[in-house]
Amino acid sequence: MMCKHWAMHRVVVLALDGVIPFELSLPGRLFGVARDAAGRPLYEVLTCSLDGGPVRTSSDYTINVGHAAAEVLPGADTVVVPGAEEFTQITHRAALPEPVAQAMALIRPDARIVGICVSTFLLAALGLLEDRPAATHWFHAEHFRRHYPRVDLDADVLFVDADGVLTSAGAASGIDLILHLIRKDHGSAVANMVARLCVIPPQREGGQAQYVERPVPASTDASTSATRAWALDRLHEPLQLADLARHAGMSRRTFTRRFRAEVGMSPGQWLVQQRTDLARHLLETSDLPVARIAERTGFGTDATLRHHLHATIGVSPGAYRRTFRRAA
């Protein structure tokens, strides 16, 4: 039996009646395979129900869990609440079952709370999302906004990290959110290793906009995917919208419209995201000076790189490198 490492981060998954099995499985699968350079596990994942008893799922079976909420929630560093279809009926505080509220009250104030998909409704009913940004499945976005107008819901993104309370869109975006947490905790090398082991993309482009059901126009434009691949090989160059549109053989207006429909963000936002990701990778894996990394990523100057990195993750290039630079 593997001994718990003293520095291991404890993740507790709260399984509630009606839980969606796919979402319930994500924390154990993703956090569970994260390892440090010596091969030691970085997370301990425990699953609980309100009373330690069996939990009805949204499929045709019930699951048994190993713990009651009172046993493990007080010691959690991160709490994950997978979605259940019934959560969309929690439209105000009184609609939240009291045993659920009591269990959530056991969570330490400094613990992270993660809601996958429609768990956003449950977190909103608890008052955890008031005046904060949040995400939920695009299909339920208008329903959510009607009942929780004080939450700054963004139905276009895959997930939101809002000062210790994190929410994701659909079920699969729970993968994106957990990989984000692993990347935030231990750097992109560990997150990429987890993604490779689970055979999933380490980071998906864009947001929910690309998955929202829309009428198909009678005449469609060509895809922008080839231009995106072309741009990724030229991030060091001062690419402009006109350059991208010219490569795609479209007008700037048509290219921007098609790009946003496919990726869920503007070409400019996408370029900044890709350049920032490349900068983080180089800070983690190379000894290049920050000024040189700024040139190689297309930011031009270290001041511009510093601005975008701080806007994305809240730290300077030097602080990021000190935290995540892997020992040779």
Rank of each mutant, 00 (worst) to 15 (best):
M1D: 12
C3T: 15
H5Y: 11
A7S: 14
M8Y: 02
H9C: 09
V12K: 02
A15H: 07
D17S: 15
R29V: 12
G32C: 05
G32N: 00
A38K: 14
R40I: 05
E44H: 07
L46Q: 13
T47M: 01
C48I: 02
S49V: 01
D51E: 14
P54A: 10
R56K: 14
S58W: 00
D60T: 14
T62E: 14
N64E: 15
A68S: 14
A70W: 06
G75N: 03
V79G: 00
A84I: 04
A84H: 02
E85N: 15
E85K: 14
E86Q: 13
T88F: 02
T88N: 06
I90K: 00
R93S: 13
A94E: 15
A95F: 11
A101P: 00
R108D: 14
I113P: 00
I113H: 06
I113C: 01
I116F: 10
V118L: 10
S119I: 05
L122F: 00
L122N: 01
L123S: 02
A125F: 06
L128V: 05
E130C: 09
E130I: 05
D131T: 10
T136L: 09
H137T: 07
H143R: 15
F144W: 04
Y148F: 15
R150A: 15
V151D: 09
V151F: 10
D152I: 11
D152P: 03
L153I: 10
D161E: 14
D163M: 08
G164A: 08
V165Y: 04
T167E: 03
S168K: 01
G170D: 07
A171K: 06
G174R: 04
G174Q: 07
I175H: 00
I175M: 13
L177N: 00
L179D: 01
H180G: 08
R183W: 01
R183Q: 10
K184Y: 09
D185H: 14
H186L: 10
H186N: 13
H186S: 13
S188R: 15
A189W: 08
V190W: 02
N192P: 03
N192K: 14
M193L: 11
L197T: 14
V199A: 15
I200S: 04
G207T: 10
Q208S: 15
Q210G: 08
Y211S: 01
S219Q: 14
A222T: 12
S223L: 09
S225R: 13
A229L: 13
A229Y: 08
Q240E: 15
Q240C: 10
A242P: 00
D243R: 07
H247D: 06
H247R: 02
A248I: 01
G249I: 08
S251E: 08
R253V: 13
F255I: 04
F255D: 07
R257N: 11
R258V: 12
A261L: 12
E262R: 09
V263Q: 11
M265N: 05
S266N: 03
W270S: 12
Q273N: 11
Q273G: 07
Q274M: 15
L278R: 13
L283Q: 03
L283K: 00
T285W: 05
D287F: 13
L288N: 03
V290L: 11
I293C: 01
A294W: 04
G298M: 03
D302L: 04
T304V: 13
T304I: 09
T304D: 10
L305I: 09
H307P: 07
H308E: 15
L309C: 04
H310Y: 12
I313G: 06
S316Y: 03
P317K: 06
P317R: 06
G318N: 12
G318P: 05
A319R: 15
R321Y: 08
R321P: 03
